[in-house]
Design a protein around this nucleic acid. Structure first.
Length: 512
RNA sequence: CGCGGGGUAGAGCAGUCUGGCAGCUCGCCUGGCUCAUAACCAGGAGGUCGUUGGUUCAAAUCCAACCCCCGCAACCA
């Protein structure tokens, strides 16, 4: 009997396709991929869901500006995002485009369920509409009562809209929060949302008049309206999880991957997930995702990344400079999941050199070089049997074990930068051991002395080999190909089969 | 008095709950080493722990007040 594998499903927030992929997307993808690979390594049955958010006013406008249809516009952008996935080695099992036909059916099924439950009604929406922007404006957006982009006073207009009765779900949301104190990671983001709810929720407009904005999923049974983009985008997780319209109608999602174990998203869209989506699901009597992971933003040299400052770092540039896997490592090492992180090319370069070239790469080089040299001599003058003393091996493993445990704790807590620190600690242990025991001195001894100290030298090298095996295991989620390379080099039956490894991370010059 | 997070070495951070020699990584200086990718190891310099006051044998840590920075403060995808 094959044992049932534990399932783990991770969804990643879908990017809004009104511009090309930036480093924030790269960061989010790598976070998700690292989590997915870690669970796979634990032997779980992992499904990763990603996608693209393709409807809404901004896209419609961007398309218009480019002189193409919205569909053509998003069709051209999707490959850019897929290229970034590929370039970063990020894999997914399902990629949901909100323009996919099956997604439209899910969004509509959810709408109907929420409507049937009595949480959607029709109202007059009254708002300040800027003709230039073709969009409603809030008071807060106006400068001196005028649209800052067009310097014109918006008109007060009315139109028919459907409203989602968020206010009725306030209490249910708070009850859900109380019952699931770990629902949002980090805790501070949960507190923000709770405070927000406690201030009182208002009903929100969830449809748009097609005469003003037609790029969206039609509201069921009403051709004059399309869905507000968030009401269409958020159910992508249901579509990705294999939920069907029938499941939504019945409320029985068994057979699908819903509810997902984790949705990984940026802090800017926390509210839409933690409040709007949660409320939609409660209204529809469907299970909520098990956890929201809210990650921070990247700043560059302490400044917000922006085109006007000119400090934008393109992920493709990073990949070209450092390589795909080092880029993954650097992002994970420098940006804590639970808060914002600041990077610069200098910082990334320093980290590359310290951790990868001088750390992991150099350790592999020095170790395998010595093993090869040592064993060449060993073949001539001593026995070529025996890897190393088994009891010693156990002892060494115990020295690495605390770091492996700390690594596991950090990974479960999504503290990836701390997990990476543990890997570097193992590297240091190996470097220190080699320095203390100086196996290379043994090479220089005359035959008799050499023979006498053979076991000792072999043991110190074995320490590093065991350390490298551990390092390869722990690196697996972060830089899988490199981890495999290390593993293949070091995990061989007999120590004298090991050959000098080529540099894993060649030094890189930082040209300013 | 809106809610929340933070201020510790040149940079980035841990330590604060539970008071007990102020730590880690990077950078810098000196020495050692030569197996290794000018790598590695050891030692060192560098701190009014935001400010002021209080409690205590003892405060980065507890208490009070104040200063500064940053998030959140809805239909923006």
């Amino acid at each position: 009997m094959e044992q049932e594998k534990k399932q783990f499903t991770i969804a990643t927030a879908i990017p809004y396709l009104n511009a090309k992929a930036h480093i924030g997307h790269a960061l989010e993808y790598v976070f998700s991929d690292v989590i997915a690979r870690y669970h796979k390594q634990q032997g779980e049955d992992v499904v990763a869901i990603m996608g693209a958010d393709e409807h809404g006013q901004k896209i419609a406008r961007s398309a218009q500006d480019s002189g193409v249809t919205p569909q053509a516009y998003v069709d051209a952008l999707v490959p850019k995002f897929l290229e970034l996935h590929t370039a970063l080695g990020v894999s997914y099992d399902r990629f949901i485009r909100t323009t996919d036909a099956d997604h439209a059916r899910i969004a509509q099924a959810l709408w109907k369920k929420v409507q049937a439950a009595g949480f959607i009604d029709e109202r007059e929406y009254e708002g300040l509409y800027c003709v230039g922007c073709e969009a409603f404006k809030t008071e807060a957006e106006l400068v001196d009562g005028k649209c800052p982009d067009h310097l014109k006073e918006p008109e007060m207009i009315r139109e028919k809209n459907y409203f989602f009765q968020l206010s009725k779900l306030q209490q249910a949301l708070l009850e859900w929060y109380d019952a699931h104190p770990q629902w949002i990671v980090p805790q501070s983001k949960m507190n923000e949302m709770r405070a927000f709810i406690e201030r009182g929720l208002e009903d929100i407009s969830i449809s748009r008049d097609v005469s003003k904005m037609s790029w969206g999923i039609p509201v069921p049974d009403d051709d004059s309206q399309v869905m507000y983009v968030w009401f269409d985008a958020l159910p992508n997780y249901l579509t990705g999880a294999g939920v069907t319209p029938e499941m939504i109608a019945s409320g029985d999602v068994s057979g699908s991957r819903w509810p997902v174990d984790l949705i990984n998203l940026g802090k800017d869209i926390n509210r839409f997930h933690a409040i709007l989506f949660a409320a939609m699901l409660i209204a529809a009597d469907l299970p909520l995702p098990k956890q929201l992971g809210v990650h921070g933003f990247i700043s560059v040299n302490g400044q917000k990344m922006s085109k006007s400052i000119g400090n934008v770092i393109d992920p493709i540039d990073l990949i070209e400079k450092f390589g795909a896997e080092p880029t993954r490592y650097l992002l994970m090492a420098e940006i804590p999941f639970q808060s914002d992180g600041d990077i610069s090319m200098e910082k990334l370069h320093d980290r590359y050199t310290a951790d990868l070239s001088n750390g992991i790469g150099n350790l592999l080089s020095r170790t395998t070089t010595m093993v090869e040299k040592f064993c060449a001599q060993a073949d001539e003058c001593v026995c070529q049997e025996s890897g190393f003393d088994a009891s010693k091996a156990e002892e060494w493993k115990n020295e690495f074990a605390p770091h492996e445990s700390a690594f596991a704790v950090a990974m479960r807590g999504m503290d990836f930068h701390i997990a990476i620190q543990q890997i570097q600690k193992i590297v240091s242990l190996c470097d220190e051991k080699l320095e203390q025991e100086k196996p290379w001195e043994v090479f220089k001894l005359k035959e008799e002395e050499f023979t006498a100290r053979y076991g000792e030298a072999l043991a110190s090298l074995s320490y590093s080999l065991i350390g490298l095996r551990s390092i390869a295991r722990l690196l697996q989620s972060f830089i899988p190909e490199t981890a495999q390379k290390i593993s293949k080099t070091v995990n061989v039956e007999r120590i004298h089969h090991i050959r000098k490894a080529a540099p894993l991370f060649p030094r890189i010059e930082l040209n300013k």
